[in-house]
Design a protein around this nucleic acid. Sequence first.
DNA 1: CGGCATCCGTGACGATACTG
DNA 2: CAGTATCGTCACGGATGCCG
Lengths: 208, 208
Amino acid sequence: MSPRRSYDQYCSAARALDVVGDRWTLLIVRELLAGPRRYTDLHADLPGVSTDVLASRLKDMERDGLTTRRRLPPPGAAFVYELTGRGRELLPVLQSLGAWGAGELGERRPTDALRAHWFALPLLRELEGEALVEVRLEEGEFHLYAGTEDGPVYGYGPAPEEPDARLVLDSAACEAVGRGELSLRDAVRDGRVEVTGDSPFAKALREA
Amino acid sequence: MSPRRSYDQYCSAARALDVVGDRWTLLIVRELLAGPRRYTDLHADLPGVSTDVLASRLKDMERDGLTTRRRLPPPGAAFVYELTGRGRELLPVLQSLGAWGAGELGERRPTDALRAHWFALPLLRELEGEALVEVRLEEGEFHLYAGTEDGPVYGYGPAPEEPDARLVLDSAACEAVGRGELSLRDAVRDGRVEVTGDSPFAKALREA
DNA sequence: CGGCATCCGTGACGATACTG
DNA sequence: CAGTATCGTCACGGATGCCG
């Protein structure tokens, strides 16, 4: 728990960095945008973070109103961490960072870790309208709540109910989309993304 | 010059943080959005940064393509630092951070430093259309290039040519706008902002 | 075993002094 | 003016230990 090292500048960007500028904080937000998570699972999806730093950040974030800690009902009665509304409002920050960072992404390096749901943010930027979308990659599966205002923005594993559309992408295609070199629209047209579903949303996506 | 401590994650947000996630880097970008600056002036407008950290960040940023170092023509022949196009593309990141951080800003604390041009980003968010706007605060003066794509986004001191509009705000008004509690539109209507100028832009602003 | 707390080595940071 | 040099401190990353 850091005693808050502030820039002490009366500037809203500097204040934001006082709260989320520490190492790992925004990446923890990225993880929690997928919904509530346990400590150990967070640690597993944030390779490189040390246990004490993760614990310390979670305390800081709770103190700062970004997250809450909640006990799951039995069975399984573990603690989970989840974003508050204020925490979820950081989505535009992660989106703009991600949009800029796409230009830095390049080829995947041998040392680069990868999780399927890290493609959720770039894909979300490309989807218009309100829909539940299930995405299957070689690395795993996740789902997106496109166009929603509150609640989780995406989630792990298959969609909890029948989705409006299902997408299947191979590694090359989703990495190209992640780098911003390939739009989802073009990927669909070139047959590099398989879109299934009977909803108007799925049909519109196929005809893009 | 740091040997680049990377998160090693194949995620565009993490890559962005590899480049701009270090302490002070984004605040240096905020300063340079106002145009070329000398080392000493940068240091003066970033209270709290130590000389070696500032020098180190400027080297890192040049290596990463965010800034260039250029010698001014005599007289004055000093070095100035300025953003590249790639560096200026970080404006949306600072805007989203600033929009979020407005909720954290609160009252000005006694320890908070303040520079007039730190209000440039919040004001820029509220201006529509393309215009050169001169702003006078109690703390100083700056000008905004609203709606431009390239070149500096704002600058120190009075506008270099006749502006489309001039704004005069008192401290209370500009701090309220900075906190997001008062829109520029409302501030104009309540007479808390003085708008002068004969251009259509100035007239539209007065009649908002 | 999940959820941390403790210890330790390294490096980043902040303040000051100093130099071309 | 534009940094570099030095130094103490603290944050970070890795490993290990503890406790329910």
